[in-house]
Nucleic acid binder design. Structure first.
Lengths: 348, 348
DNA sequence: CTAGGCTGTGTTATCGATAACACAGCAAGC
DNA sequence: GCTTGCTGTGTTATCGATAACACAGCCTAG
């Protein structure tokens, strides 16, 4: 059977006995078309199986109706939550989210940003504040609002909705110290590919130094983002080398879970022999026994706030691009330390 | 500062001293443009900060260059893997993936499919084989290849790359039976919103019946997809009601992990007192102690295979829409039972 | 009774690219 | 030397919608 050509607005117009322009209006809300005409047109459209071509609509109206977002990985509960928050925040405006993942790779991020920009998004959200120089240029020249998230970039491109990963690392270090731990280590990946993870390590180690605690118990295991497997093997290496370690921060909850399992299999009591903390407030850290102390980065709030920033920027085009230095463009999200059994001897 | 109008192909053409058509060719691979002209044009484009407008390109060429995919949730390692497989499989063709999530809601899926179709994707991939009637109609009338995944639909729309969730349930039931368990229960969500989860339960219970085992130990806890929390509370309810239960299948590994934690806190030995199995081969089930027996649905392979099916369909337009009954359009993915310590007394 | 305004619809001119066709210039074959 | 064919480039006509403007018809205020 031959498939008939897909109907266009002109076909619907003919069927309903009006002009194409009236069809265009009738299919959109808040346009002046009489109720009766609108109903007739909608009925004709449905009958013909008409589906609007938003490629043509976008070209003509110069509005694409979507926001592009790059995240390092789709399989990450935190970034997924941010995407969800962004979707929800954009919903009232009718804008959709176009999502891409970069695999924690700057070159891939550059490629992805470029293909996104070809589709003329109305705003771009990127994860992190570190990008290739060309990627920065592309974003800056795009003419649309750009939001960097999950970070506090040294040199913001435009808007920022994030938090300091270094501060989160410090937060954990101070907590472990306050719990009386002194021989403290860190488990993370073996490169700075995950720049946010590297920032947490940096902040953590800096805090140890400030507290006068040796900062040499550092195990790097595998390419970031490390997960359960690497957390487990890193824990074995940590204990092999420094058997008297009293506490360890893992770069994420997933690696902390691996570390917890490994510690158990090594016959160590948690938190009796060793305290373990993670990052990211993943579900899993709530259900292990003991629960894992972590930092909630408020992923969902980051997404919601980003949506707010975007909608504000789009509704005030006159204020666009006030220059990267405008402090109003940087929104700080408050992270929250969640203390659980893995770092505290008496239940609190 | 005033932002200059974004440059168009005509601007680049002028700068390079050629016609717009030559610019169009020069920016695409495998087109006949002399090396020297191409280099000059590319240089001019880069200098002007030109970014191709693929909205216009798509309208003109009637090819959008992307495949749309709906998944129930972004925050799910399995669907994420399928999306990754699809992305990889499509990469050689230069096509991108446009991803949307439906929150396990058919009405939301319908809405999403409609907005996707407006953007004229070159193919659509949906998760599952159950859709609203209007969604089926939209997809069938779209004129592009449609792939249903993660399921074996009773009434396929077009192509299928999936497996039988009921068979996976049966697989677990037979395994538990073979391990000598007789008092066997099931933990899942309280509705059929997650139709694939409901299919697994159906297959599992059917197998119990076939094996002559009572099939009444059924705990439904929370709206699907249930996760760790619901798995834990369901386990407590299961044991409260049927303290002598010897084995349980959970609808997914996440709920199985919750169930495992709860069983432990109840003082039960796993697998000594009770065997626990899950579904989905999530990382976590490999790192718990004991590891959790599960079924690997080969999520990544589903994505890769879907890409293959799509590219084949697009390269043979003459064979398009041979009718939903063509058995060549249904590709079965072999799931694999992974037996771990949670269901087997002696290590295997 | 008429100017002015509002509502609903049509007309015209794009939006920014690409397909299809045309053709100039040159090389190779006979 | 002339046809044939290939390579590289230009011209023309869309692709399917929407913005901007125009205007008819009717209502209302003074």
């Amino acid at each position: 059977m031959t498939v008939p050509r897909k109907p266009t607005m002109a076909d619907v117009a003919r069927a309903a006995g009006v002009s194409p322009m009236t069809v265009s209006r009738a299919l959109r809300p808040e346009t002046s078309v009489s109720a009766e005409t609108r109903a007739r047109i909608r009925e004709a459209a449905e009958r013909l199986g008409y589906v609007l071509d938003s490629t043509a609509a976008g070209l003509s109206s110069r509005r694409s109706g979507f926001v592009a977002m790059t995240i390092p990985s789709i399989n990450n509960a935190n970034f997924a939550e941010t995407a969800r928050g962004l979707t929800e925040g954009l919903r009232p405006s009718g804008m959709e989210l176009l999502l891409g993942y970069t695999d924690y790779d700057e070159a891939e991020e550059e490629r992805m940003v470029e293909t996104f920009l070809r589709r003329r998004p109305e705003a771009v959200v990127v994860t992190g504040g570190v990008h290739t120089e060309r990627c920065r240029t592309l974003l800056a020249a795009s003419g649309v609002p750009v939001v960097e998230t999950w970070d506090r970039p040294a040199r913001p491109i435009d808007k920022v909705v994030g938090f300091s990963n270094a501060a989160a690392g410090r937060q954990i270090a101070h907590h472990l110290y306050a719990e009386g731990r002194r021989r403290i280590g860190f488990i993370g990946g073996d490169s700075s590919r995950d720049t946010r993870g590297a920032d947490r390590r940096r902040g953590f180690l800096q805090a140890l130094e400030d507290l006068g605690v040796p900062r040499d118990r550092l195990v790097a295991d595998g390419a970031p983002p490390i997960t359960m497997r690497e957390g487990a093997s890193a824990m074995r290496r940590l204990i092999e080398r420094w058997p008297d370690t009293e506490a360890v921060m893992c770069v994420s909850d997933l690696s902390a879970f691996g570390a917890l399992s490994a510690a158990r299999r090594l016959g160590l009591s948690v938190p009796g022999d060793i305290a373990i903390a993670g990052f990211g407030a993943y579900d899993i850290s709530e259900f292990t026994d003991p629960g894992i102390t972590t930092v909630d980065a408020r992923a969902h709030a980051i997404g919601l706030k980003s949506a707010e920033v975007i909608l504000a920027a789009l509704s005030h085009p006159e204020a666009a691009r006030r220059g990267a230095a405008d402090p109003n463009d940087v929104i700080e999200i408050e992270t929250a330390l969640i203390v659980r059994g893995s770092t505290r001897l008496q239940p609190g």
